[in-house]
Design a protein around this nucleic acid. Structure first.
Lengths: 242, 242
DNA sequence: CAGAAAGATTGCGCCAGCGCAAACCCGACA
DNA sequence: TGTCGGGTTTGCGCTGGCGCAATCTTTCTG
C-alpha cells in the first residue's frame, strides 16, 4: 500500500490461476472466480515490508500468492505475540472489514512476496452478491477460530516444550514440503517467531530447538527449518515424554 | 436435545422478542426476524444440563435467551479449558455448521436456562437467502476471533494476576449489571471456571480472588461475583502494579 | 436434619522456564 | 576484505505459580 519499494501489477496469467485456487472462491463457477481475480490488485513486495499496521482503518482484504506474511499483535503494554504466519493460498486482514473496521494486528512480509488485495467496496459487494462466497468466508474464519481456540487451550495447559512442538507441526501442515521423509517448512522463521508462536521466550525456544537439532529431530537448510521426524515431534506434542 | 429433564416449547411472546434482539438479525426488517423466530425451537433446561458434546456431529445452531452456558474444551490429554461463558443474547455452536461439522467443545448450562436453536437445514437456508444474515454471522464470528486472539496474546505475555483481572472484566462487559457503582456478574462462576478462563490453576485463582475480596475490590452475593472497583481492576489488568 | 458430595481455602515445597548479560555467528555492504 | 548490525547461543540465578494434601464450608439429597 503505497510503499516506496513496492511494485504494482495488474493480474497476470499465473496470478489469476493462484487466485482461482483460493478457498474464497471454492465451489464457484470459473467465470465468477475470474471476475474475482479481475478485481484484485497485485503487489510485489520485498521481504520485511509492511502491508498494514495494527489500528489502521481496514480498507482492503488480502491474500498471499507467493511468499509469506507475519501477523503480529502488540499489546497496550508493548508485549508482542505472533498470531499466525500466512502461507501462499491463505487470506488475511479480511475479518476487520466485517467488524469494527480496524486491523487488529500488524502484517509484514517475511520474505519477498506477491500479495493480492481487494478494496472494501469490491469485497463487500462480492459477499453480498454471492451467498457461496459469504459461506466460504464464514468457513475460513471459523477454521481460524477453531485453530486459535486450540492454541489457547494448549497455551493454558501444556508445557513450553509441547507448545513449541505444536507450533512447528502447525507450520509443517501449513507449508510443509515433503522430501525424503522429512518436511521442510517453507517459511523463514527466526527464533523469536517460534517463541512468539508458542507463547514462550526467545531463550527457551532457542534452547529447545538447539536440543532437537542435537538429537537430529530438526535441521536447518538455508534459513529454513526441516523436520526430520514428524512422528516423534507429534509424540512430544502429545506429551508423551517430559 | 432429548434430555429427560428438558421441557420443550414453541416460541412464545417473550422468546420471540428475545430472538428479534439477537445480533443475527441485526439490520433486518421485523417480518424477517419474526420468520427466524418462528423456525426456532425453545428448550427450557435446568442448570448443569448438557446441550451438546465435543466431537458430536453439529446439527443445530444455538442462542441463549435466559440463563448462561459454559463452553468447555477438552484436550486429547484430558486437560480442560473454558473457552467462553455465553450470556443471554449470544449465540453458540454456529461455526461448526459451516466447517467440518463437529462441535469443537462441550456446552452445558451453568444455571437454569432458555435455549433457542435452529436446525442445520433451516439455518443454512437463512444464510443462503439473506446476505445480511451471512454478514451478521461473519461479524459475530469475527468478533469472537478478535476476542480469542487477544486472550491468546495475554496468555502468552501477562502474569496470572493480570489474566484473572482480564477474565473478570470480560465477564463484566458481557453481563455486568451496574448497581451503585459496582458491577455484578450475572453468571454463576466457580473458582475452577475463573481459573480455566484465565489459563491458570484452581489454586492460584482461589488465592487471587481471596486477596481481592480482602481488599474490598471484590465481593460475593449469593453465588455471584460483584466487582466493586472496576477501574482498579482495569489498572491491575494493564499491569500497573505487580 | 443428618450425612454425603462438591466446592473452596491455605500451608508448604519445589521446579520450569524467565530473563539478564556476555559471547558468538554470519550475511550485507562498502 | 574489514566491520557492522541483527540474530543466536548459553551460563547462571531467581521466582511465579503449580500442585499435593489437609481442612473447612456450602450445597444437595433422602
Amino acid at each position: 500500500m503505497g510503499h516506496g519499494m513496492s511494485e504494482q501489477k495488474a493480474p497476470s496469467q499465473n496470478t489469476v490461476r493462484a487466485i482461482c485456487a483460493l478457498g474464497l472462491v471454492k465451489g464457484l463457477p470459473p467465470e465468477v472466480a475470474a471476475h474475482v481475480a479481475s478485481l484484485a490488485r497485485i503487489d510485489v513486495l520485498p521481504g520485511g515490508a509492511g502491508v498494514f499496521t495494527q489500528g489502521a482503518v481496514a480498507q482492503r482484504a488480502y491474500a498471499v500468492l507467493v511468499g509469506a506474511v507475519r501477523i503480529r499483535q502488540i499489546g497496550s503494554d508493548g508485549a508482542q505475540a505472533l498470531m499466525r504466519m500466512i502461507a501462499p493460498g491463505e487470506m488475511f486482514g479480511t475479518v476487520a472489514l466485517f467488524t469494527e473496521g480496524y486491523y487488529p494486528a500488524d502484517a509484514e512480509t517475511a520474505m519477498p512476496s506477491h500479495i493480492a488485495s481487494w478494496s472494501k467496496a469490491d469485497f463487500m459487494a462480492l459477499t453480498m452478491n454471492s451467498p457461496q462466497i459469504a459461506i466460504n468466508i464464514i468457513g475460513m474464519v471459523g477454521q481460524r477460530l477453531a485453530n486459535v481456540q486450540n492454541r489457547l487451550r494448549e497455551m493454558a495447559t501444556q508445557s513450553a516444550e509441547q507448545r513449541i512442538a505444536h507450533a512447528l507441526l502447525m507450520l509443517v501442515e501449513q507449508s510443509g514440503a515433503v522430501q525424503a521423509g522429512a518436511c521442510e517448512i517453507c517459511i523463514p522463521l527466526r527464533r523469536r517467531d517460534v517463541a512468539e508462536l508458542a507463547g514462550t521466550t526467545l531463550y527457551t525456544a532457542s534452547r529447545q530447538l538447539a536440543a532437537w537439532e542435537k538429537v537430529g529431530l530438526l535441521a536447518r537448510s538455508r534459513q529454513m527449518l526441516v523436520v526430520r521426524d514428524a512422528n516423534k515431534l507429534r509424540r512430544i506434542a502429545q506429551g508423551g515424554l517430559l
